[in-house]
Simulated scan of single mutants.
Amino acid sequence: MGHRYELEEKIEALRNELNLASQTYGLLSETVLELSIELDELLNTYYQFLFLRTIA
């Protein structure tokens, strides 16, 4: 169960970083794009983890 909370903490930290970067560099910056892609991948991992737990 620790893995789930670790993922949630990483997601929240990355969301905060993304928000700060978007305010600093603008929504169309390369930095924001890279962070957004990283967050998408992390969210996909999280939802896949939750899905696999529901069918196990």
Results as ranks from 00 to 15, higher is better:
residue 38 E to N: 11
residue 9 E to R: 10
residue 23 Q to K: 15
residue 37 I to R: 09
residue 39 L to Q: 00
residue 24 T to L: 12
residue 21 A to R: 03
residue 21 A to H: 02
residue 28 L to F: 11
residue 11 I to A: 01
residue 25 Y to T: 01
residue 30 E to M: 07
residue 22 S to A: 15
residue 26 G to L: 05
residue 11 I to T: 04
residue 12 E to G: 02
residue 20 L to S: 15
residue 6 E to G: 07
residue 37 I to T: 05
residue 31 T to K: 03
residue 13 A to C: 07
residue 1 M to Y: 14
residue 8 E to G: 01
residue 32 V to Q: 00
residue 33 L to I: 09
residue 3 H to K: 13
residue 31 T to A: 05
residue 13 A to G: 11
residue 55 I to V: 11
residue 27 L to D: 04
residue 22 S to G: 12
residue 16 N to S: 10
residue 46 Y to F: 13
residue 53 R to L: 12
residue 24 T to H: 12
residue 45 T to N: 13
residue 19 N to I: 10
residue 4 R to K: 15
residue 52 L to K: 10
residue 12 E to Q: 09
residue 52 L to T: 08
residue 15 R to M: 09
residue 48 Q to W: 04
residue 23 Q to H: 10
residue 39 L to G: 01
residue 35 L to D: 00
residue 53 R to Y: 08
residue 34 E to K: 11
residue 41 E to Q: 15
residue 12 E to A: 06
residue 38 E to Q: 14
residue 52 L to A: 13
residue 38 E to H: 13
residue 43 L to A: 05
residue 22 S to Y: 00
residue 5 Y to A: 13
residue 29 S to V: 02
residue 19 N to L: 14
residue 5 Y to E: 15
residue 31 T to C: 02
residue 20 L to R: 14
residue 34 E to I: 07
residue 10 K to Q: 15
residue 27 L to A: 06
residue 47 Y to G: 04
residue 25 Y to Q: 03
residue 22 S to K: 07
residue 36 S to A: 09
residue 30 E to P: 06
residue 33 L to E: 14
residue 46 Y to V: 03
residue 32 V to C: 03
residue 51 F to H: 12
residue 42 L to C: 10
residue 5 Y to P: 02
residue 20 L to A: 14
residue 27 L to I: 06
residue 56 A to W: 05
residue 7 L to S: 04
residue 12 E to Y: 04
residue 38 E to W: 01
residue 8 E to W: 01
residue 16 N to M: 13
residue 9 E to H: 12
residue 21 A to D: 03
residue 29 S to F: 02
residue 55 I to E: 07
residue 37 I to N: 05
residue 8 E to S: 01
residue 50 L to V: 05
residue 47 Y to K: 06
residue 6 E to W: 09
residue 8 E to V: 00
residue 1 M to R: 15
residue 13 A to V: 09
residue 24 T to M: 12
residue 44 N to A: 13
residue 27 L to Y: 04
residue 22 S to M: 09
residue 17 E to V: 07
residue 30 E to L: 10
residue 10 K to N: 13
residue 54 T to W: 05
residue 13 A to Q: 13
residue 31 T to P: 00
residue 46 Y to I: 04
residue 3 H to G: 07
residue 44 N to D: 11
residue 9 E to T: 08
residue 15 R to Q: 13
residue 43 L to T: 02
residue 27 L to G: 03
residue 4 R to W: 11
residue 25 Y to L: 03
residue 34 E to D: 10
residue 27 L to Q: 06
residue 53 R to P: 02
residue 13 A to H: 13
residue 23 Q to S: 11
residue 4 R to G: 04
residue 17 E to A: 13
residue 12 E to F: 03
residue 2 G to E: 14
residue 36 S to V: 04
residue 23 Q to L: 14
residue 8 E to F: 00
residue 28 L to G: 09
residue 13 A to N: 12
residue 10 K to V: 09
residue 18 L to G: 08
residue 20 L to H: 12
residue 35 L to A: 01
